[in-house]
Design a protein around this nucleic acid. Structure first.
Lengths: 150, 150
DNA sequence: TACATTAGTCAGAGACACTGACTAATGTAG
DNA sequence: CTACATTAGTCAGTGTCTCTGACTAATGTA
């Protein structure tokens, strides 16, 4: 604990604060648009579902939870009509978790909310700084994301 | 959900990934040093305790949880010998949550872990980019942290 | 002195995340 | 082609986190 007390401000907290701010605002925007019957944990799973569906194990790995936890959350999402599980044609053991139409309709709402937050940030930081921030974070991902795929 | 699908990468995820990486590594370093009997949620509370103690309500506000949750976590920390609650001389209703000696001893361990991670990042990004990242995040905090104090 | 506010607690419930043990399908070595 | 290990996913049980609602006690204010 107490990761602070270094030179300036704790870099972890500095990363976390805007992340939380963004997440909160996107969540609120979705709720305002009527998409209010899912939780933050469920959203984290849904975020990771690809256009052609994603396996439970992959979702678990990317969200950094156990497959049991991912299974629980996918179960909740299925009950709520956000996802369906379809058999994976390439592997009889596996099933693909896919977004339903309803879930796909929510994507533009979420995107718009992200765009609004991003615009606020850019207005505060200026376009140059904002662009560099994004570039730096993409670069940082190479070493800070065990799951970086590219 | 599905906050992605914009131009490049979801900026929220880009902020979150290094945050999580840092947190995981600091947590692991503390565990290796023998400080392994507290949880991530408890750490988030402890992080916010000032050198002269902090009120429960303030901890709750900063960590963005209810005071009941903060109270629960402080209770766990108290059982584990990480904090003590002392009366607040200026307000008979309030108590100050203070770090014990044991907790204070863990601070340099956490700081060293943060320094190590920061060094890794700087090695990857280069000193200029790292410096700008920190500056930008501090600037961003002004609008992304409802609790920014300064 | 009455009333509203603030600090914190108690009780109960739901959500989340873990470990361990399991089934079924797949891949591999002999 | 058979035995073994691996992989995908589920079931059961438990502990932790977080919330809402209702409450006590101290403080501030009219």
């Amino acid at each position: 604990m107490e990761e602070s007390h270094d030179d300036g401000m704790n870099i972890g907290l500095l990363l976390f604060l805007p992340y939380r701010s963004l997440e909160t605002r996107v969540f609120a925007a979705l709720a305002r648009a009527g998409y209010d019957d899912f939780t933050a944990a469920q959203m984290k799973i849904m975020q990771r579902i690809g256009p052609d569906g994603t396996r439970l194990t992959d979702l678990a790995e990317q969200a950094q939870v156990t497959k049991q936890t991912a299974g629980f959350l996918v179960g909740q999402l299925e009950k709520g009509g956000w996802v369906v599980r379809t058999p994976d044609p390439t592997d009889g053991r596996a099933r693909l978790v896919c977004l339903t139409e309803r879930a796909k309709e929510a994507i533009p709402v979420a995107d718009a909310a992200v765009a609004e937050v991003t615009a606020d940030w850019e207005a505060h930081l200026g376009p140059r700084r904002m662009k560099r921030l994004r570039e730096t974070l993409i670069m940082l991902r190479e070493i800070a994301d065990p799951y970086a795929h590219q």
